[in-house]
Amino acid sequence: MTTQTSHAAGGHAAPNVKLYMIIFGALAFLTLLTVLVSYIHLPPGPAVAAALGIAVVKSSLVVLFFMHLINERPIIYGLLALVAFFVLFLYLLPMTDTIATSGRRPAQAVTTAVEATR
C-alpha cells in the first residue's frame, strides 16, 4: 500500500490523491462484482454472505481512507467500538425473538409487488 497519510497542520490528514484514485477504482470494481455475484442466483446462505462481505470490504475502504480512520485518535475508535457493541444487540436479540417465535406465527407469504397489485 502507499505511504501512510501524514498529519498536516491542524490535525487534517495530508491528502494523497493517488491513493484516493486507487480506492475509487476498487469501489467501482467491487460494486460491479457484487451485482455479478447476485446475478448467478446463489442459495440464500452464501448469497447473503457474499453480498455482506463485499459491502463490508467497500465500506471499510471508505471508512479507513476517505474518512481518514486509518490513523485517528483513540477517542473516535472508542466511540465506534461502543456503537458496535450496542448495534450488535440491536440486531441479535430481535432476530432471535423472531426466529424463536416463528412457530407461533402462521407463515405470511409476502407476494411480489406485481402479484399483489393484480
Binding site: T31, T34, V35, V37, S38, A47, A51, L52, A55
Partner: peptide
C-alpha cells in the same frame, strides 16, 4: 453501500 445489496440483490 449496505442498502443496495440488501434490497436489490438478495
Amino acid at each position: 453501500i449496505f442498502l443496495f445489496p440488501a434490497l436489490y440483490l438478495l
